[in-house]
Amino acid sequence: MLPYLLIFFISIFCTFLAEKTVDKNKILFFFFSAIAVLAPSLLAGFRDSGVGTDTKIYVDRVWGVFKHVNDWNQFYKYYTRDAFSDIEFVYLLLNFIGSRFGEKVNIIYFITSFVITLLVYLSAFENRKKSSMWLVMFIFLFGYYNQSLNLVRQTIALGIGLYGFKYLEDRKWIKVILLLILLKYTHNTGIFYIGFAGAYLLSVLKYKAKYITLIITLFCSIFIFIYFDFLIGFLVLSGILPSKFLFYLSGDTIDYTSLFIFHFIISIILMTIYVFKINSLEKDSLLSFAFINLLGSILILTSLVSVWSFRVAFYFLFISECLFLPRALYLMRNKRLEYIIMMITIIFLYLFFWNKVYIINNDNDTYPYKSEIIDNF
C-alpha cells in the first residue's frame, strides 16, 4: 500500500504546485509537471510481472514476440499476418517503439503507463480554468490507476477518449471522426465511445422535452440487460464488432453491485450540486454531468449479464469522474461551506473506494506492489 500512497501523494502535490506556477514560472511548471507524470509512470514501469492481471495474459506475451522483431518491415509483416492475434495496432506500435530501447518487459510497462498518465495530465491542464488540476489527478490515481496496470490497452483508449473529449465538446466533427478511428485501433471497445458521445450530445443540446427524453433514455438502458445477447450478436454479424466480442455474451458473470453503488453515489453528488442555486447555463452542464455518470453506473450492472460487458461503462465513467466531477466542484467554489463539504466527501469516497477495491478485494491483482528492480537497489 505504501508505495502507491507515496507516489500518489508526490504526483498530486506536484500537480498542485504546477498549477500554481503555470502563469508565473514556466521552468518550475515543467519541472513539477514532469514529476507528476513520471512518478506514477515509473512506479508502473518498475513493477514485477503479475502486478496487474493482464501482464500475464497478453502484455508479457506480446513483448516476447517483439524481442524477435528486428525492423519495421518485419513488424508490419507480422501484423498483416495476424501474428499478434487480436491485439490492436496502437498498442503494438508502442511495443515496437519500446523494443528499440531494450529487451526488459519493464520498458512497455513504463511506456503504456506514461502514455495514460500524460493524457490524463494534459486533460487536467487544458481544463485548468474549469477545474482543479490536482483533483483530476487525484480521481484518476485513486479511481483508475491500479486498474490501468491491468486493463492496459483499454485504459490507453480511455485516456485518448478523455483528452479527445475537447473535440466533441467544441463540435469539431472531423477531429471527432479521427478520434473514433484512433480509438478503434487502440482497443476494440473504443467503438462504444460513440455511445458516450451520443449520450453527451443528448444531454447537452437544447430541445423541448429534454428532461423527459433523458429519463426515458435511462429507463430504456434497462433493456440492454434483456436484449444483451441480441445486441452483441447483431453488432458482430454486421461487422461493427470483431468476433472476440462473442465472449461478452451472457454466461459467466461477476457481482459488481458494490462498484455500482459507489458510482451511483457519485451521480447523487452531481445531482446534489445541480440543485444548488447556480445560473442556468451551469445547470445545463451539471445536468449533463449527472446524466452521463448515472448512465455509466447503470451499465456497470451489465456485469450481472456478462463478466466482460461492464467495461463498456468505463467510457462513460472515466470521462465523467475524471473531468465532469472536478468541473462540477469548481462551479461551487464561491459557495465556500458547500464546496468544502463536497470536496471532503469526494476525497473520502475515493480513498475508501481505492482501499476497498484495490487493496482489500485486490481487484486487478495490483496488491501487494512488488518490484525486483527496486528491491535490488
Rank of each mutant, 00 (worst) to 15 (best):
Q154V: 13
Q154I: 15
Q154S: 08
A157M: 07
L162V: 00
Y163Q: 06
Y163T: 00
G164Q: 02
K166S: 04
K166R: 14
K166C: 06
L168Q: 05
L168M: 09
D170E: 13
I174L: 14
I177T: 10
L178D: 07
L179W: 07
L180S: 05
I181P: 02
L182Y: 12
K184H: 12
K184W: 12
Y185I: 03
T186W: 01
H187R: 06
H187S: 04
I191N: 04
I191Y: 08
I191Q: 00
F192I: 03
I194F: 05
A197C: 13
A199M: 11
L201V: 15
S203A: 15
V204K: 15
V204T: 12
L205C: 13
K206S: 07
K206T: 05
Y207C: 06
K208W: 13
A209M: 13
K210T: 10
Y211V: 15
Y211I: 12
Y211F: 12
Y211G: 10
Y211W: 12
T213Q: 05
L214S: 05
I215Y: 10
I216W: 00
L218D: 06
L218G: 15
F219A: 14
C220S: 13
C220V: 12
S221G: 02
S221E: 06
I222K: 07
I222W: 09
I222L: 11
F223D: 00
F223M: 11
F223T: 11
Y227Q: 08
G233T: 03
L237F: 11
S238G: 00
S238F: 10
G239I: 04
I240D: 01
L241R: 11
S243E: 13
S243A: 10
K244R: 15
F245R: 00
L246M: 10
F247I: 08
L249N: 11
L249D: 03
L249P: 04
